[in-house]
Simulated scan of single mutants.
Amino acid sequence: MTETQRVNMGKQHPAPYKALMALSAEAEGAAAAAGLDPLLVEMLKIRTSQINGCAFCLRLHTRDALKKGESPDRIAVLPAWAETGYFSETDRAALRLTEAITGVADGHVSDEDYDAAAAVLTADQVSAVAWLATVMNAFNRVAITSRYPVRD
């Protein structure tokens, strides 16, 4: 990692950061209202941050997930979720859609990925997962661009 000093976007322009925080709270509220497990919500944040390589958000949401009671084993195998028996059908559908949304630079969310999620999740859950992924991707970009520090 380079030591080049970066502008902290959240401090330089606090109003947009506060708006992003408010959007995050709304997305989490939508997820709760749609019946998504709070542990799944944290796992979606972690998976998005893994894909984006955001160390700051990875540490933050891993700690949050552990505090909420998430299993260290599930967190450990999250990058290979499709190869394990740790995740429910709902978890798998949400993770697949989250990965597709996070990877839009490699191609749009395919009908196959969307249809797989829609076959398991309700419309409210699909929308909530999409909002969670959208917000988490935005947070990752803020933290990565600003190079939020991650130290012992």
Results as ranks from 00 to 15, higher is better:
Cys57Met: 11
Pro72Ile: 14
His61Ala: 03
Ala65Met: 05
Asp106Ala: 06
Ala100Met: 12
Tyr86Cys: 12
Leu60Met: 15
Arg59Thr: 14
Phe56Tyr: 15
Ala65Gly: 04
Ala100Leu: 08
Thr84Val: 10
Glu70Pro: 00
Pro72Asp: 09
Trp81Ser: 13
His61Phe: 13
Leu78Cys: 05
Val104Tyr: 03
Ile101Ala: 08
Arg74Ser: 03
Ala100Asn: 04
Gly103Gln: 10
Phe87Thr: 07
Leu97Cys: 07
Glu89Asp: 15
Glu70Thr: 00
Ser88Asn: 14
Arg63Val: 03
Ala76Ile: 00
Ala65Ser: 10
Val104Pro: 00
Ser88Tyr: 09
Asp106Ser: 09
Thr90His: 02
Leu78Trp: 11
Leu95Val: 09
Ser71Gln: 08
Arg63Asp: 12
Ala65Cys: 09
Leu95Cys: 06
Ala105His: 08
Asp73Gly: 03
Leu97Val: 05
Leu97Gly: 02
Pro79Tyr: 06
Lys67Thr: 06
Ala94Asp: 03
Ala105Val: 08
Ala76Gly: 10
Leu66Gly: 10
Gly69Ile: 06
Val104Ala: 01
Cys57Ser: 11
Arg96Val: 01
Tyr86Leu: 11
Leu97Met: 04
Trp81Arg: 14
Leu97Gln: 02
Leu95Asp: 03
Ile75Pro: 04
Asp64Ile: 07
Ile75Cys: 03
Leu66Tyr: 02
Phe56Gly: 11
Pro79Arg: 10
Ser71Lys: 03
Arg63Trp: 03
Thr84Trp: 06
Asp91Trp: 13
Asp106Thr: 12
Leu66Asn: 11
Leu95Ile: 13
Tyr86Gly: 15
Ser88Trp: 11
Ala82Asn: 08
Cys57Arg: 05
Leu66Ile: 12
Cys57Glu: 08
Phe56Cys: 07
Ile101Asp: 01
Arg59Ser: 15
Glu89Ser: 13
Ala93Cys: 10
Asp73Leu: 14
Ala76Cys: 00
Thr62Phe: 02
Asp64Trp: 05
Arg74Asn: 02
Thr90Glu: 13
Phe87Ile: 01
Thr62Arg: 10
Tyr86Ser: 12
Pro79Glu: 07
Lys68Gly: 05
Ile75Ala: 04
Glu89Cys: 02
His61Asp: 04
Ala82Leu: 06
Leu95Arg: 06
Gly69Asp: 06
Val77Gln: 04
Ile101Thr: 06
Ser71Val: 10
Glu99Gln: 05
